[in-house]
Amino acid sequence: MSDLKTAAATPDRNAAPGLRFLLGPLPRYVLRRLSQAFLVMLLVVVGSFVLVKMAPGDMVDVLAGNADMTAEQMAALRARYGLDQPTWVQLLRYMYSLATLDFGYSPLNAAPVLDIILARWPVTALLVVSSVLISMTVGTIMGVVAARNAGNPVDLSISLLMLFFYATPTFIVAIGFILIFSVFLGMMPIAGFSTVGADYTGLRYVWDVITHLTMPVLALCTFFTAIYGRIGRAAMLEVLTLDYVRTARAKGLSERRVIYVHALRNAMLPLVTMAGLQVSSLVGGAVLIETIFGLPGMGRTAFDAVFERDTNLLLGVVFVSSLSVVVVNFVIDMLYMALDPRVELA
């Protein structure tokens, strides 16, 4: 088979191998996407900065409220943080420091913004990645099973369960979990990312984190499992009526092969699209779950930063979250191409 493949890929024989690759469609595509991403991030920085500055009150107001300051002290503080300058000067200064990977200082946390984000981003990433993987897998399987049993009791019960998941607000699920598994049964830790003060290491630590994240991840999963289930069922039902599925059956392939090799791969495309949307909505939007379960993630950091008027921290969180979404979108597009050869680099 290998000689067949090389026979198929014989474009330009004259170009040097390295140069041919650099001029190839993939690097050009990546380059274009990178420049697009740069523009998007520029807009995010300017937009979020302007929005934050438009809100009344700044960090010094909050500090003054807590610490009873005179007007002179407040003015001195503003001058120290550059808050007395015109907005556009502040923006340019901020952009310059961003370019040097300096996200500024968070006075309320008494730490550089970058350090705070580096500590909290992994919590959210773990939460998001595990819930995407679990809800996509479970939802897809449910959807496939429902589609194969379309109209009979199996389909009906799955569809009902999906509707239940779909209709139940995430925070209710979360509180329900806490009540049942932590309060009544005492099986699960109520909150936090790991046991405070236990200082576990190695596998013991991993297990500790898993037990702490189980409930928040599952709570985040319910709604999206329902979405994947419904999309998966619809996509599968559609694909199963297509001609190539009949061709596959006419070849005498087993039903399992027809479903999982021929049909499912085609039905995956809308599910992958959904995964992109789910990641994007969770990266900054897991505030509720992070708050309920006391997880030190990005959502809660942003939420707190808003109330404390901690501009630098808020802008930093928005920047990193947006960057994550841009990267995820790129990965999804790559996945799309891997799944469907008709999707061309364009």
């Binding site: 297509l242 001609d243 190539y244 009949r246 061709t247 596959a248 006419a250 021929h262 791969r265 085609n266 799944l339 469907d340 050869p341 008709r342």
Partner: peptide, 12 residues
């Protein structure tokens, strides 16, 4: 089959 345009799996 009748429709060669759709009789083959597009992703194989």
């Amino acid at each position: 089959f009748q429709e060669p345009m759709t009789a083959l799996n597009p992703v194989m």
